[in-house]
Simulated scan of single mutants.
Amino acid sequence: MRVDLFDFELPHERIALRPARPRDAARMLVVQGNGPFSDRHVSDLPDLIEPGDVLVFNDTRVIPAQLEGRRGEAKIGATLHKRIDLRRWQAFVRNAKRLRVGDVAEFGGGVTAIAEERLADGSFVLFFEGEEPVEVLLERAGTMPLPPYIAGKRPTDAQDREDYQTMFAREDGAVAAPTAALHFTDRLIAAIAERGIGTETLTLHVGAGTFLPVKADDTDDHQMHSEWGRIEQDAADRLNAVRERGNRVIAVGTTSLRLLESATGEDGIIRPFAGDTDIFITPGYTFRAIDGLMTNFHLPKSTLFMLVSALMGRERMQEAYAHAIAGEYRFYSYGDSSLLLP
């Protein structure tokens, strides 16, 4: 499909630079089938889904994966994208023309990395020197990797260490937050449990590729970056049981959705999964694992806007986004939410 079919105009003032407080006070646009749009709040979620339904969260934890440093006299920046092994990470490098294979980059605090390889997409394999775990080095030298549409408008600060992490964060490895779950609070989870709605977790380490624009003119020519994920056997069994009894599996976030769909066969059975996925969902895709999605508002011509268009229909989502823009909803990572129920 032509990528420009997924374009829309977004006023800059609609981009949220801080999250709502409290988190569950964010607004939520409910899009249900072809019915009228409903303007609600995230705190209303327990009233909008049924007892026996299950919400699926991503428990990945964002690491301080943004590094600023030098190679000799040249300033460079590195955004870690994907772990390769205990000491190696794939990274997008700013001012990459000043970095060559074999060079040592210095990131402050005694943190250094060797540029071991330059990959076909222009990214580098960085080998972090020393004996300390890379996570310890990043805590010392790194900052939270805010999306460019936020970082370009204000500096990252100490508050982002808390704001850009979900309450479910357990497994270190993401370089972008699964932002749909940023809206959840202990109070909201308690109300969900009281309503008889279940919760499950899986792990997908979100990569910086989630921010990359689609540069191709046609979706067939776009190459997705892979991300590592895991679904345990017992979680898969419980989710299969939910659907067998006629209830719904609702993904909280596109990351949860993409991993669930990657782990599900044509027979509709969710299976345990551990490995990379580069699934790219566009209109025409037949969903196998999920019955709904809670997600924030996404960028024009992005793979994520294509995904929600696959779920609800492209024209329907264009109408929903036009409604959200006119209604002054807040967009992107720190913005408001939507509940999509086809």
Rank of each mutant, 00 (worst) to 15 (best):
E194W: 04
I281L: 02
L204M: 12
G268E: 05
D291T: 12
R195E: 09
E106C: 03
G102E: 14
T201R: 15
L311F: 11
V3Q: 05
P147G: 05
T277W: 03
A320T: 05
L293D: 00
I84T: 02
I63C: 10
F124P: 02
G142K: 05
T156M: 15
Q66G: 10
D217K: 13
Q223E: 13
G69Y: 01
P272G: 02
F280A: 05
T286Y: 09
D160L: 07
I63S: 04
G246V: 08
A289L: 04
P145Q: 11
H12M: 10
E194T: 13
E171K: 08
A96G: 05
R258L: 06
D7K: 00
Q223D: 12
E139W: 11
G246W: 04
D24R: 13
L239M: 07
V56F: 12
V111A: 06
P36H: 11
R288Y: 12
A20Q: 10
K301Y: 13
V214M: 05
T255Q: 02
G292C: 06
F6A: 07
V175A: 13
L48P: 03
E200F: 07
L29P: 07
Q90C: 03
L341E: 10
R187I: 09
M306K: 03
F305D: 02
V101D: 12
P46K: 04
T185D: 05
M144Q: 11
E200M: 12
I270Y: 06
A191Q: 09
P19Y: 07
